[in-house]
Amino acid sequence: MNDANQSGHAIPWFTDFAEGPLWYVAATVFVFGVLWRIVGLLALGRGEDKSVPKQSGMAGGIKAILLHSVPHGGFFTHTAFHVIAGYMFHIGLFALLFFAAPHVDFLRERVLGFGWTPLPDWAFIVAAQISFAGLILLWVRRVADPVIRRLKDAHDYIGSGLTFLVMLTGCFALQESRPVLAGIHMFTVDIWLIYFPFSRLMHAFTFLFSRYYTGAFYGRRGVTP
């Protein structure tokens, strides 16, 4: 179990476990869990809307997807904070997830069989800093804002906390000097993947459906949501 990597450091069994059996279990739960949730959601369908359509529901749905991606309707002062911090976090996370060199290597070798050009090191670090800044800002506001604090429950904190841990352990492993650090990062990723389908992290896939549904519902009635 104690093989040695190229740098000569012993690879602990923990890293083998996190990158081996646990990774396969986590990936399986993630893929089938997400599919199960999405198919289940679509299979629910929606009741017949007997209202007389004033406008196209589809146009309303598309409009809602686009409008809800930017501050609109005079709400900028109230939404600027979470819009800016939200974009910082999500764009940074996207860049980290799909364009960090170690992740591109992992996806090529373990998942897809092909890769693409990763970000240079400096851009990867900047993306990580922007993402961390966004997450910390959103987190602090979630605790400090009296309205948002009352709207949130444990699942919100578990989901964002796990995401923070995944990012933090990834930051710890940046130097790629110790296999155990990569193992800890991989372990948190595995837990995150297993938790994902059963949590609000699913919004990464469902936000388009929910925005479209709301937009179509109101659009049919001639209202811009």
Binding site: F132, L168, F172, Q175
Partner: peptide
């Protein structure tokens, strides 16, 4: 060595 490595990376990033 592992703690020093992660501390250095965290310190430089944050």
């Amino acid at each position: 060595a592992a703690i020093a490595s992660l501390s250095l990376q965290a310190h430089n990033l944050f």
